[in-house]
Every structure is written in C-alpha cells, then in structure tokens.
C-alpha cells in the first residue's frame, strides 16, 4: 500500500455499526470512548431520510453513546447543504420527521425538488407537481436511491423508484447526496479540516460505506454486524482495507496500527 498521511479523522456509520435498532453493538460505547482518547476527530455519518439529527441523537444518547449533534452528518444534512449552496427553494418530498433538518429553508414558490423516503408524498398529484418543476429546470436532489426497504408488513418501495420515475420523465439525472456518493464523504470531512487520505470510514455496508469512502481516497473498514452478509467484502474492488468482527475490533485496529 502506498504511504499514507497520518490518520486524523474517523467516520463511523450508525445503524448496523454502533447499534442495531434499539440495541448497541456489544462493547461499542466503550470502544468509542477509547477512540476519543486518541488524537483523532470522530464524525458519525448515516443515510437517513426520515430521522432528523435530533431523533438520531436521542436514540444514541439512550444507548449511552457519548455523541454531540454537531458530530453527526446525515444524508439530510448533505441535502440541506446542497440546497443552501445552490440557493434554491426546494419542494420537500421528505418525511415530516425529517423537516426539522430543513428549518429556516425557504420553501415557498419552489424551484428545486428534494426527494427522500416519503410514501405519503409519492402519489400522482404531488409527483406531477415535482415533474413540472423539473421540466422548468429545477434541480432534482435525491437523499438516496434505495430500491426498497423492509417494513413490518413486508417489502416496501424506497425513494429510488420515484427518483427514477422523475428522471425518466424529464430526461435528467438526480444529484444523489447520500452514501456512497463522493460528495457525501467530502462534505462529512469538511469542517474537520482533514483530507480524505487522512481519514478512515467504519461501516457495515460494503458498497455504500466502505466502497464509497475508498472511492474518495479514504480507508474503509467493513464490520460484520448489521446488514453484513457472508462474502460481502468480495462485492467491491479494491476490497475493504480491513474486514473485522465489529466496531470495537475496528477501533482496536486503528489504535494499535494506524496511530
């Protein structure tokens, strides 16, 4: 491996890596404390379309993780940043619970479309409104493009199919802001002052976490918790920098080998 800069930042995925639903990954809180004892910056990055930062924070605090709100970077944050950067007024097709992350964003007389997971908005009239805005040149910003997700009553359509529908109808491409997009990882690092070569990502999704991070020049560690399935590490090329049992093992590796 080529010589790398000293490690200065660690990005950590949340769901599946630190916790699985309402249970912490065993030893994860302690491991996080150990990591904080080292001289690295820690950021928590996640693809969420319906949980605001506040929701995430509350859940993590309940699980006794030592995390502050400004350390969390989500796909909703990324969307908001892009909206601010483009200075547009978005039509927000997002879950109501996600709206706090767009507080103070101007949404009247929209000239952009932000689309997340919002089944209550995915119907003919609303999609047609979005379609017409796009035809008028409004940018389409997708939180992510997941095909479907699992609900208690079975599989359910994710935002991806509806993003694809609008892309097809308007012959445009959405800007996807969540993992595994390069801009997501770069934005997450902004504010840490670190370069990708100085950062490492820990996550349970081989493509979205590890592949995405490695694509921008970071190292990636795949943990075998959460959505991990046997042989996931073979899904990307180059393979993960490291595949290990769980978050605590990843932290140990960093502390012993990379600092």
């Amino acid at each position: 491996m080529a010589a790398r800069s000293a490690l200065k930042a660690v990005l950590v995925d949340l769901s599946g890596t630190l916790h699985i639903e309402d249970a912490a990954v065993p030893g994860a809180q302690e491991a996080l404390k150990r990591l904080r004892g080292a001289s690295v910056m820690v950021r928590f990055v996640t693809n969420t379309t319906k949980e605001s930062k506040q929701d995430l924070l509350e859940r993590l605090k309940k699980l006794e993780f030592d995390i502050s709100e400004d350390e969390i970077f989500t796909s909703l944050t990324a969307a908001r940043n892009l909206v601010e950067q483009k200075q547009v007024r978005p039509m927000l097709l997002v879950d109501d619970r996600a709206l706090p992350d767009f507080r103070e964003i101007q949404t009247s007389d929209p000239n952009a479309v932000v689309i997340g997971l919002a089944p209550e908005h995915f119907h003919y009239q609303i999609l047609n409104q979005a379609f017409r805005l796009l035809l008028d040149g409004a940018p389409l910003i997708a939180i992510h493009k997941a095909r479907y997700y699992k609900r208690k009553d079975g599989l359910a359509l994710g935002p991806g199919p509806f993003v694809t529908a609008l892309e097809y109808a308007t012959d445009t491409k959405a800007t996807v802001v969540g993992k595994p997009e390069k801009t997501f990882f770069l934005e997450a690092l902004r504010g840490t002052g670190c370069k990708p070569e100085e950062a490492i990502m820990i996550g349970d999704d081989c493509r979205d976490d590890v592949g995405g991070a490695q694509n921008v020049g970071m190292l990636g560690i795949l943990v075998k918790t959460g959505k991990y399935r046997a042989a996931d590490e073979e899904k990307i090329n180059p393979p993960p920098y490291l595949t290990c049992e769980s978050f605590p093992h990843a932290v140990d590796h960093i502390l012993q080998r990379l600092l």
Binding site: Y124, F131, L157, G158, P161, A165, Y168
Partner: peptide
C-alpha cells in the same frame, strides 16, 4: 400542462 405518463411509473417498478 404536461402530465407524467405511465412510463415514469413503469420505470419506478423496473428499478425497484
């Protein structure tokens, strides 16, 4: 005005 046609919804199911 212009209206979304069936193709958009076909694409959605194809992608899903």
């Amino acid at each position: 005005g212009l209206m979304l046609d069936i193709g958009a919804y076909v694409k959605a199911l194809e992608y899903a």
